[in-house]
């Protein structure tokens, strides 16, 4: 699948942002009123909202965006619209109370934290639901998204122990996703023979393509260029996303250290997300004899 920069940016940043919002909603930590609280909540909201905004860049016709709230009964994308907005709205009074030191009860914070998790869960299911992309159609997809959310959120909120645990889970999720993902297409057992039904006669290969230059389908779903540097990118994803942060988290905690860890983690997360798209193969490629 085409690794659109706006989608990579959106999913990575908003994941981290919603992770941070979840921790702040839980009151873990409750930042000191004033600029500390403003900075924490501002970062959470900034990342989450920024990600949502970036996601509209890849829409062909964003002027209808409000209609995306209508089909929550069947569509994960519509559910994501609801949960993300609900999270942002419900956490607003908690943020305000923290900022101005109003000391309001934190019940809404818990609800907001749950909604934040649901938001990332719905994002992951947009991809996880697709039978047409076998690498995505797997429990490792929500695991990956939630893992990055937890790790990113814990790092940004300065929670050493949760960050450590989340990075461990994330490393496992990454390894599982790479391992099972590599055989997913073969296990789905679709071939040009089954796509055309001509497999019943014999071995099917492309004789002539139906058009001379790439179309929307090929640009969007048959993306081979990005798959070139899989090994180094996997190392970056694992190393910068989880391993290095784990090592650095063992050092005495300080804001500077956490900022460094966050920057390193972000690089790993972006590499992992690039691979998530670039390596995903859509069955429509079978009609074109390439994936």
């Amino acid at each position: 699948m085409h690794p659109a920069p706006s989608v990579i940016l959106f999913t990575v940043l908003s994941g981290m942002g919603f992770g941070l919002l979840a921790f702040l909603g839980l009151g873990w930590p409750v930042p000191a009123p004033g600029w500390m609280a403003f900075l924490h909540w501002g970062l959470g909201y900034g990342l989450a909202v920024g990600g949502l905004a970036a996601s509209t860049f890849h829409l062909g016709n964003p002027k209808n965006a409000l209609k995306a709230f209508s089909q929550w009964q069947t569509s994960w994308l519509s559910r994501e619209a609801w949960t993300s907005v609900a999270t942002l709205v419900i956490l607003a009074p908690v943020a305000l109370s923290d900022w101005l030191g109003l000391g309001w009860p934190r019940g809404l914070g818990l609800v907001g934290a749950v909604l934040a998790v649901l938001t990332v869960g719905t994002t992951s299911m947009i991809y996880g639901q697709l039978k047409t992309v076998p690498r995505w159609h797997s429990p490792t997809t929500p695991l990956l998204f939630l893992g990055f959310m937890a790790a990113g959120g814990a790092i940004l909120s300065g929670n050493a122990l949760p960050a450590l645990l989340a990075c461990l889970v994330l490393a496992a999720a990454l390894i599982a996703a790479f391992h099972f993902g590599d055989t997913a297409f073969a296990r789905a057992a679709q071939t040009t023979g089954s796509a055309t039904g001509l497999g019943r006669i014999g071995k099917v290969t492309v004789f002539e393509q139906p058009h001379t230059s790439p179309n929307y389908l090929m640009r969007e779903m048959i993306h081979v260029v990005g798959r070139k540097h899989v090994r180094p990118l996997r190392l970056i994803a694992l190393g910068a996303g989880a391993a290095l942060p784990i090592l650095l988290l063992l050092l005495p905690a300080s804001p500077v250290l956490f900022a460094l860890i966050a920057a390193i983690h972000l690089i790993g997360a972006a590499a992992a997300r690039w691979l998530f798209f670039a390596q995903a193969e859509h069955v429509v490629g079978l009609y074109y004899g390439r994936r």
Binding site: H58, G60, N61, K67, L130, T132, E220, V284, Y287
Partner: peptide, 26 residues
Amino acid sequence: DACIGCGLCAWACPYGARELDQAAGV
């Protein structure tokens, strides 16, 4: 008139039957 051009339906179709119109965005 309701489409936002998100492309998700084209991703979900196994047969490559949907193409986004690059000019209309739908």
